[in-house]
Write a protein that binds this DNA or RNA. Sequence first.
DNA 1: CTGTTAGCGCTTTCAA
DNA 2: TTGAAAGCGCTAACAG
Lengths: 337, 337
Amino acid sequence: MITKPTIKDVAKLAEVSIATVSRVLNGSPLVQEKTRQRVWKAIEKLNYKPNALARGLINKKTQTVGMIIPDISNAFSAEVVRGIEDIANIHNYNVILCNSDLDFQREMKYVTTLQEKQIDGLIFLSEQVTDEHLDCFIESRLPVVLVATHDDKGLLPSVNIDNVMAARVATEYLLGLGHRRIAFISGPFDDPIAGITRLTGYKQGLQAKGLPVLEELILEGDFTYKTGYRNMRKLLQLQPRPTAVFAASDEMAVGAMNAILDNGLKVPADIAVLGFDNIDLTTKVRPRLSTIAQPMYDMGAIAMQMLIKILTDAPLEKRIVKLPFELIIRESCSVKK
Amino acid sequence: MITKPTIKDVAKLAEVSIATVSRVLNGSPLVQEKTRQRVWKAIEKLNYKPNALARGLINKKTQTVGMIIPDISNAFSAEVVRGIEDIANIHNYNVILCNSDLDFQREMKYVTTLQEKQIDGLIFLSEQVTDEHLDCFIESRLPVVLVATHDDKGLLPSVNIDNVMAARVATEYLLGLGHRRIAFISGPFDDPIAGITRLTGYKQGLQAKGLPVLEELILEGDFTYKTGYRNMRKLLQLQPRPTAVFAASDEMAVGAMNAILDNGLKVPADIAVLGFDNIDLTTKVRPRLSTIAQPMYDMGAIAMQMLIKILTDAPLEKRIVKLPFELIIRESCSVKK
DNA sequence: CTGTTAGCGCTTTCAA
DNA sequence: TTGAAAGCGCTAACAG
């Protein structure tokens, strides 16, 4: 069986030393033009590809980064990942994908494996970054950038959106349309990233207008279609009915929307619906749903840019980045009250 | 600055040779229990992690595979990728993710880079596998498994669904409901994977019943929401109207659905709608759409299993796998004519 | 400008 | 049961 050609084979064929081949490969200027051409010819003839393992062993750089995310099959993560990979690709990095399912054990196992593979840096998406996470990251001495999350102590660079502000602006928008009974289908009350923050924003929006926060109008979901649907059914029983619902995720918003329609009511004529997230499909499959657009792609892209800066010792202007969001208004909440 | 501990450091601390450390690391039985324990203690104390690059250099195995896909932010790919990663993870492989955007140049560049990184195998998703692709794969001598595509010559192992059969069964289902004027919104007529195949299945379904294939009922889209919407508008002008539409993608089906609703008609009372694909969101966000479920996750998982078998020299029962699909019937086409 | 040589961190004979 | 030494494919001094 024929083995892969190595630098030696190239050297032999080009009748030079392996050092010269190495120089040509790395674009060193101190090689005669004639020699360089001979070497390239040999490289092409043999279809030689340098071995990145051997290179990495010496350079202590692999041009590879790790990326630990909860679940790629979730449209969110997928957008972020695309942003990461695009920027990585531009800078000649490759990306190792790891699905954690938010399982701490798996996260830790991945960190170990990635360390062994000598990755240059790590991008980490998760719900909450605990002290154990932090310990592990520090111990690993890997450059880490957090996405869509942050650590309490602000030790690690991160990129995020301002969930409180986003929810507040959205609430104020609904108020501006004339709505006064605005229900809120929240994420889990113990989720510090996308749960309480958005709830807080909702409350702030009401309070800024001097309106009361009514407990009956606030229900807890878990971001899924099902809890959106169920909670909306409960809300429909209230007297008087809310005139608008703001859900902390698009999936819940769509669930709510279907619950409303199933009840024989109209969106937005009877009840306006506003979601949160803007996964790709919101705009494509559900072009009628109003939503708060989280720039998922940008979050990934910017996180990767930050990582690259760290890896190249470029200065980071900001360690904690908060990206602007966008309010996308469609039919589902476009009618003035 | 403290450097990473190497096998030398462990050897020194445990007062053994590096060979012994290596044996312990690789679970060799010919190490005394006492020595083994001393070594493990040293490993833990130093928090030593073996360098996978050095290992790979010798073993010619990296426990890493590459995965070239068109676009991870597309819900399809994401499902497949999840299947791939899950199986890879079980077998202690990592996965390098590459987005090609179906650009041949990028695909080739990725293959080169992945080769340099000494991946053990490659999973390739694309629309069409050309002869150039084939040349490149063969030249690379990498084990390759194709997903959701195949090569004409059947040289490479692949996993797929039977698009013709799927579309035929779907058409027959609609016929079984009593529909006789069934429109078909096709994918591009020059797409050999998901275009003509599904169209063929549709035609076969009609012909098997002795029904004519009417050109006016067949329109060409490109799988997107927009073309579904537009084509449906055209179909609505026909006299008589079709009583059912079968779209070659869920996005087009949803587009068609909205066009029907916008026209003041009801689904499925006036017109039944059937899609194709079953991306995750179809079931979650669009629980009312009937569809042909392509087992995307399974395709990824099975492809990875095949690759693992190839890598471990296990026999492959089948080189060309065709997975069964599933007809998921929901409200959108549940009414008998 | 080019070649020689010493490793990078590890596995694997071969001896002891 | 253990250690010494060779070498995987490459880069980077150092010499010439």
